[in-house]
């Protein structure tokens, strides 16, 4: 399977995601410059964290108009796997691939620390390797991770089991402790915490590694099914 890491000007976790796919789970991976208009043969696209366009406007609001986003949206609509992490999650929200919006953290500060997450859904390509209810020790690093969605939307997320990760101790004020969600088709994940920052034991834990391994497992299964 082949991963692609989309690079916007201002992305800063692109190399970290590349490193994990390349060095830790040892899968083929390529960078994709944001002005690219064609995607070929990718199985999973990573929209990495960072400050696309400086996040001087609402986070992700400019990146959403980058040329790459049209093919990304097409790719997602055709069932391709897309994972947006942190700023990547924000971009997916702005692009309409996931529902809801981000507000500034409740304490109005950037927060960088390890937090605990609870796995709420394991029937996704991104979380199938975890157990439901499993607690993950994983870093967050963001200014705007206070996820918001209206009542109707929230009811929809719950009804369709779209909430994949919840904070155990909500650090940023996110509604219903939401840290990560999938779309209805379950092929697009957005999450604020950074699994790439805890995929190796040297970094204080490897609880995030199963996200990547789940993706690989799911893709392999899919290609054999074909």
């Amino acid at each position: 399977m082949k991963f692609g890491v989309v690079v916007f000007p201002g992305s800063n976790c692109d190399q970290d995601c590349f490193h994990v796919v390349d060095q830790v789970i040892k899968q083929p991976v390529e960078f994709i410059w944001h002005k690219t208009t064609k995607l070929d043969n990718f199985d999973c696209l990573i929209i990495p964290g960072g400050f696309s366009y400086g996040d001087y406007l609402r986070c992700g609001a400019i990146a959403r108009f980058s040329p790459i986003m049209e093919p990304v949206i097409r790719f997602a609509n055709n069932g391709g796997l897309v994972i947006g992490i942190c700023n990547g999650f924000q971009i997916l929200l702005e692009a309409g691939l996931l529902p809801g919006a981000m507000l500034r953290n409740k304490n109005l500060h950037f927060i960088c620390k390890f937090v605990n997450l609870r796995v709420e859904a394991t029937d996704t390509p991104f979380s199938s390797g975890y157990n439901k209810g499993q607690i993950l020790h994983i870093p967050i690093a963001h200014n705007e991770g206070n996820y918001y969605i209206d009542d109707k939307g929230l009811a929809g997320l719950k009804k369709n089991n779209q909430i994949v990760f919840r904070y155990v101790n909500n650090p940023n004020g996110a509604i219903d402790d939401i840290a990560g969600i999938v779309n209805k088709n379950r092929n697009v994940l957005g999450m604020m915490p950074h699994p790439e920052r805890c995929s190796e034991d040297a970094l204080g834990g490897s609880d995030g590694r199963m996200v990547w391994e789940s993706i690989v497992k799911w893709s392999k299964k899919k290609s054999t099914a074909r």
Binding site: Q15, D16, F110, C112, A141
Partner: peptide, 24 residues
């Protein structure tokens, strides 16, 4: 230090709060 991103680049193996920071 919790307002500073101290983990990006995935090298920080001893986080802030110890005697010195350690990076791989």
């Amino acid at each position: 230090y919790e307002q500073y991103d101290h983990m990006v680049q995935v090298n920080t193996v001893v986080l802030p709060g110890s005697d010195a920071a350690v990076l791989r």
